[in-house]
Design a protein around this nucleic acid. Structure first.
Lengths: 242, 242
DNA sequence: TCAATAGTGTCTCTAAGACACTATCAG
DNA sequence: CTGATAGTGTCTTAGAGACACTATTGA
């Protein structure tokens, strides 16, 4: 008969290294808008495996520094962009025996959005990181299964744009409704009807006015500027748009 | 100067146990409908930590037997229910330093649905597993953060019911529209208007007729039976319901 | 007959789609 | 003035909500 042991005693003798366990990473697809295109931040791998290939920013959890998965993602992004991103959410987790040549591996995939301007200078100074237009990413041979991860995050971005105000996070505040519509269109990869767009957004009450601005291109009627209202981030429309 | 090594050489000398890594588990919130209540499958823990408490089914990945995370979830459910569940999807992944007394731990949370009948006998024979009405789960002191995980899965279930036909997976086929409406109502925790419900489901073309059946309770007009049409599983409504 | 369950007709209401219209600026 | 951009008026349409109605059975 085996002797019953207490939980305290059990924990004392427990060592995770006695068991086979998968690699665990966090990867982030960080998107922005620049020059009228959707762009993703990629990092050139400096170490094996897949050294020299482009990959999503990410890496291992720091068991001391990171209190949660989310912290790992923010930390990795801060290293590459110099800022805390305004939108960071988990897309899902992919785990299988093939995705990493080192063995069974699990990655928690995050999707993040950031306005381009405040990151540009810092990213230029990080020699292994750069923005890539989403259309060009398909032509690269990304490390691991990161091409699939980019697609997963891109899909999530597209679908959430259809029933939230997610795109506010790729714009610098304040912004005009015209700019916001362009952002929606680029993230959804669709063109939207102007009146429907404005009615939807304004009726939702998720924006507050923030003065007047100059029109795009300098000529034309001046524009009303807006910024997101407090707690508008999780507003959900009851119909999908577009 | 360090010598450049090849990827093959790198992989040969790589040992994951050289690095600190979190525990990784898969947990599944399996729901069913029985006696007009939503129920969730729980398992009484036979080992430390939290021995004797009720927990979600789940556990460690078997690096040899499981090709993907999904396989771990199906395997664990098969052990407890004796069947392959008809709906299994990932809800998200929770990872932090506090959720498991053994240390930094990550769990991939899945949500699953199954009709009650085909599982009942097998589950009765599994002494450590039983269905719990969702309302009673709050009164138990579940292991780890499983109370939160149940809530997360419950929320996902509720929200997806509002724009998909997910509830077809808790019914035995064929079923009547009345039964399907009861399933929607229990999963959404709301009452639905009969005409709106029938119009919505029938117009979507996600069901095919499957003969006639007896009405609930034996008296009354006989009912038309349906089964899900092929590839109707990922049908998305463009408006949320209820 | 009735009670019980299944299923329909039809009006209202909300929000999206279409698209022509007006408004305000620079040059 | 013209041309460019910002913003509106208004009709149509799809689909949900409300709710009274009819249909078909067992007892």
């Amino acid at each position: 008969m085996s002797r019953e042991i207490t939980e305290a005693r059990f924990l004392k003798q427990y060592d995770p290294k006695d068991y086979d366990s998968p690699l665990v990473t966090v990867d982030i697809a960080l998107f922005t808008l620049h020059e009228s295109t959707l762009q993703v931040l990629l990092v050139e791998r400096g170490e094996h495996p897949h050294k020299g290939r482009w990959a999503l920013p990410g890496g291992f959890i720091d068991l001391q520094a990171d209190a949660e998965l989310h912290d790992t993602a923010q930390r990795k992004l801060r290293q590459k962009t110099g800022v805390d991103v305004p939108l960071l959410e988990q897309v899902g987790t992919v785990g299988n025996a093939q995705r990493d040549p080192r063995g069974w591996s699990v990655t928690a995939l995050y999707m993040a959005l950031v306005p381009h301007a405040p990151t540009a200078e810092f990213i230029d100074s990080v020699t292994d990181a750069r923005w890539w237009p989403i259309d060009e990413v398909g032509k690269l041979r990304l490390a691991f299964d990161h091409a699939e991860l980019v697609d997963l995050a891109r899909e999530r971005l597209k679908s959430k744009t259809a029933y939230t105000v997610l795109p506010v996070h790729v714009l610098r505040q304040p912004f005009s409704l015209t700019q916001l519509q362009r952002a929606f269109e680029l993230l959804m990869d669709a063109t939207l009807e102007k009146k429907s767009f404005r009615r939807r957004i304004l009726n939702a009450g998720v924006l507050e006015e923030a003065g007047e601005g100059v029109p795009e291109g300098g000529r034309g009627r001046p524009t009303v500027l807006y910024r997101p209202a407090k707690n508008s981030g999780q507003y959900l429309f009851t119909r999908v748009f577009g």
